[in-house]
């Protein structure tokens, strides 16, 4: 039963992460376009560092780092009169009230917190990729469009939100759809982040004995993994079909090769 529930976990992760990562990406792209130099540096460093390093390094890093950062902030707020150092040798010690989640809270909160950290980590990593895509897309929007907006008396902000952002999606779509594929293919890494996802259960149920049970069947992990393989193949295939439809829809009436081809076909 938990095995089937873990498929839902993966889907939920995908559905939650994608918009958040897009938001991060929009933020990153806007930061890279900023006129203020430090913000632009921040945006550029964010995108280029995350792209230059394997994502798994970030997954391993952020889960611990975010956890410690949150606990540290809560520690500063909740126990200001704590005198001992936080790092004692190889231990990370914060006061009991600052623990996240509280040691008294039930099991499901622990699991949700772990899941939340995973979502945040995915959003940070994929946000950087999305920022890169959106940055390129914003530059691809024809300059004349922005000039027209200025001629109509829109200010910078209005031109950005009313002209640039609606038009950039068609240029961003190939990159974003590729990103969606990568996101799907990154979800098995959840297992490394300590979330009990499908890979975890495939290993547990497939093995002839796990920590809790001894199963009557021999080692079935191969078959479970073949099952997972088909699950992912199906997922990517369905996404491909849907994204292809979306591309057709979005290029309708655009000043691109795709849009032009549609116009000619209709005429």
């Amino acid at each position: 039963m938990l095995f089937y529930a873990s498929f839902v976990t993966v889907m939920v992760l995908l559905v939650i992460t994608a918009p958040i990562a897009l938001l991060f990406g929009l933020g990153g792209a806007i930061a890279s376009r900023s006129r203020i130099l430090p913000i632009r540096w921040f945006g550029n460093i964010y995108t280029s560092v995350v792209r230059g390093v394997p994502d798994i390094v970030f997954f391993l890093f952020f889960v611990i780092a975010l956890d410690q950062a949150f606990e540290w902030i809560r520690h500063q707020v909740k126990c200001p009169d704590w005198t001992e150092p936080i790092r004692q040798g190889s231990d990370f010690v914060v006061c009991a009230q600052a623990k996240l989640p509280l040691s008294s809270s039930p099991q499901w909160i622990h699991e949700t917190y772990g899941f939340f950290l995973a979502v945040l980590t995915f959003a940070i990593v994929f946000g950087a990729f999305a920022a890169n895509v959106l940055f390129g897309a914003m530059r691809a929007v024809p300059r004349a469009q922005m000039e027209t907006a200025e001629a109509y008396g829109m200010n910078q902000r209005q031109a950005f939100w009313r002209i640039l952002v609606p038009q950039m999606w068609v240029y961003a779509l190939p990159g974003l759809s590729n990103l969606w594929m990568i996101l799907i293919k990154a979800t098995p890494l959840l297992f490394l982040l300590g979330v009990e996802d499908i890979v975890y259960w495939a290993r547990e149920l497939g093995g002839s004995k796990s920590g809790v049970f001894e199963y009557p069947h021999p080692d079935w992990r191969l078959w479970y993994f073949i099952g997972l393989l088909f699950f992912y193949l199906g997922l990517t295939r369905i996404s491909e079909v849907i994204l292809a439809r979306l591309t057709t829809r979005l290029s309708h009436g655009q000043a691109t090769v795709g849009g032009e081809a549609q116009r000619k076909a209709a005429a």
Partner: peptide
Amino acid sequence: IFIFRGSPLFIQFFLAYEAFVL
């Protein structure tokens, strides 16, 4: 191309290892 591009590398590693062990 479809099988190797459509599935996560991580699963491919698992699958290959289990297959080799057998």
